[in-house]
Deep mutational scan, measured.
Amino acid sequence: MQRVNMIMAESPGLITICLLGYLLSAECTVFLDHENANKILNRPKRYNSGKLEEFVQGNLERECMEEKCSFEEAREVFENTERTTEFWKQYVDGDQCESNPCLNGGSCKDDINSYECWCPFGFEGKNCELDVTCNIKNGRCEQFCKNSADNKVVCSCTEGYRLAENQKSCEPAVPFPCGRVSVSQTSKLTRAETVFPDVDYVNSTEAETILDNITQSTQSFNDFTRVVGGEDAKPGQFPWQVVLNGKVDAFCGGSIVNEKWIVTAAHCVETGVKITVVAGEHNIEETEHTEQKRNVIRIIPHHNYNAAINKYNHDIALLELDEPLVLNSYVTPICIADKEYTNIFLKFGSGYVSGWGRVFHKGRSALVLQYLRVPLVDRATCLRSTKFTIYNNMFCAGFHEGGRDSCQGDSGGPHVTEVEGTSFLTGIISWGEECAMKGKYGIYTKVSRYVNWIKEKTKLT
């Protein structure tokens, strides 16, 4: 034993070699072989497995989906700052455009905790909710729209109204504003409101030439003092309507412009014939205590009207009353817009006519005020429907199939267009061939041609 100890002390290297040989010859039971080890760690190889990531292109799944990435790591994937920024906006807080917040056709661009709407022409605001041009839906104005110097929408209202708090709607500024039905039992019968379409306001006024200088022999019209197929109006439903009495009662109609003036057809009036105007009328054979009678003290036909040349060209006249009318729910003026808007309103496509005229061709006159909704007829169809001249200051309205029309005794009465609950004068009943005849239409004086003249002559002093 002493000898062994001496050998170990003198030859430590020998001992180490012996131990190493023993270990190498022993069977290893701690580690699995290569094949079995792979069965336990069965993990798919990654895209760049075996390579240094710093030297390969980034992978979106590896960089940002398996674990949260930084902007720089995302930049490695896209290799483009702009594309990385677009991805980053949604990656950080989701897609803010998912709810489609942009209105009126706006395009949404996502941002971090926010979004941006790219608005089409005519709109602005956070969600493109603000109209900035009158060309689109009248700028959301209830009545009139004008573009300011910086191309912003400025709404306005006709006389007797003021802008509401929203700067879009119009509200009454006087007790009985024009064009409004205020009798409670008839307010439910107000005709369907007309909503502004998209309009090209630059070209809204037709490029028409008034044929002022045409000389033409007097034409022989049949029954051209021209509501057939209409309905009984309720008291106060058309408070701007008046009836004219002269040699015979209810020979023509008219509309209240203001307390002192009536507008009617020029062919209705004769110099030297006494005319009485009755406002607030409903049943011409009954006294309903809503009527107001006034005498006409002055007749002003349009300066281009000449019955000797043509009885229905420039067929418009103004009547001055001896005493002002007292405005109330049964006696209310009709609204008159400017030339541009009167023309736009007419193009809405349908209007209402009213009167006490004959209820059928050569038949009896109506006792109760009649009204009828009539569609506008395109000019080409209008011209083809008659052998008589249709001037540019006239328009056609009615039904091709016949059966409904204005008729004798309705002449001078109103053709009105309702705009968001307020009625505007767009025409004056003038003439036609018979009444409600198939293929024939009622012919009306186009008020847009005469609004400046009306307003100039009827100013209240």
Rank of each mutant, 00 (worst) to 15 (best):
Q2W: 15
R3F: 14
N5E: 12
N5M: 13
I7N: 14
E10K: 14
S11E: 09
G13N: 14
T16K: 10
I17G: 02
S25E: 09
T29R: 09
T29F: 09
T29E: 14
F31R: 10
L32S: 15
D33Y: 05
H34A: 13
E35S: 13
N36P: 14
A37Q: 03
A37E: 02
I40W: 05
I40G: 06
N42W: 07
K45L: 02
K51D: 07
Q57E: 00
L60H: 03
L60A: 05
L60V: 09
M65D: 03
E67M: 00
K68R: 13
K68M: 06
C69D: 00
S70H: 04
F71Q: 05
F71M: 07
F71V: 05
E72C: 02
R75K: 15
V77L: 10
N80F: 02
N80C: 04
T81K: 11
T84E: 02
E86C: 04
E86F: 05
F87N: 03
K89E: 06
K89S: 12
Y91E: 05
Q96S: 13
S99C: 12
N100A: 06
P101V: 06
G105N: 08
D110L: 10
D111W: 07
D111M: 12
C117Y: 02
F121D: 08
F123E: 04
N127L: 11
N127F: 11
C128M: 03
D131H: 12
N138T: 06
F144G: 02
C145S: 03
K146S: 08
S148D: 09
K152Y: 11
K152A: 12
V153N: 06
V154W: 11
T158S: 09
A164F: 04
N166K: 03
N166F: 02
E171K: 09
P177V: 05
C178P: 02
R180C: 03
V181R: 13
V183Y: 11
K188N: 15
T190W: 12
R191G: 14
V195D: 15
F196Q: 12
V199S: 09
D200F: 11
V202S: 12
N203E: 08
E208P: 15
I210G: 14
D212H: 11
I214D: 08
I214F: 09
Q216T: 13
S217A: 09
T218V: 09
Q219R: 07
S220G: 10
S220V: 12
S220T: 11
F224V: 14
T225F: 07
T225Q: 14
V227Q: 10
G230R: 10
A233P: 08
K234D: 10
P235C: 03
G236W: 05
G236V: 06
F238T: 04
P239A: 04
Q241R: 06
L244R: 01
L244Y: 04
K247C: 05
K247D: 15
F251E: 08
F251C: 05
I256M: 03
V257L: 06
N258I: 00
N258S: 06
E259D: 06
K260N: 07
W261C: 02
V263D: 00
V263Q: 01
H267D: 03
V269D: 02
T271N: 15
I275T: 05
V277N: 00
V277R: 00
A279V: 04
H282A: 08
N283Y: 11
H289K: 12
K293C: 05
K293G: 04
K293Q: 11
N295W: 05
I300N: 03
P301C: 07
H302I: 02
H303W: 07
I309Y: 06
N310S: 15
N310R: 05
N313I: 09
P324Q: 05
L327M: 13
L327D: 01
I334E: 00
K339Q: 15
Y341A: 07
Y341V: 05
N343G: 09
L346D: 02
L346K: 03
L346F: 05
V353T: 09
G357H: 12
R358C: 05
R358E: 10
F360A: 09
F360T: 15
G363E: 12
R364A: 15
R364G: 10
A366I: 08
L372M: 13
R373N: 11
R373M: 08
L376K: 05
T381N: 15
T381G: 04
L383M: 09
S385F: 15
T386G: 08
T386Y: 11
T389F: 14
I390L: 15
N393F: 04
M394W: 06
C396Y: 01
G403T: 15
G403D: 15
S411E: 13
G413A: 12
P414W: 04
H415V: 03
V416K: 01
T417V: 12
G421I: 03
T422Q: 03
S423V: 08
S423P: 02
T426G: 00
T426V: 01
I428W: 05
I428D: 00
C435Q: 04
K440P: 07
G442D: 04
G442Q: 15
G442E: 04
Y444H: 04
V447C: 03
S448W: 02
V451A: 14
W453Y: 02
I454C: 01
K455W: 05
T458A: 06
L460W: 10
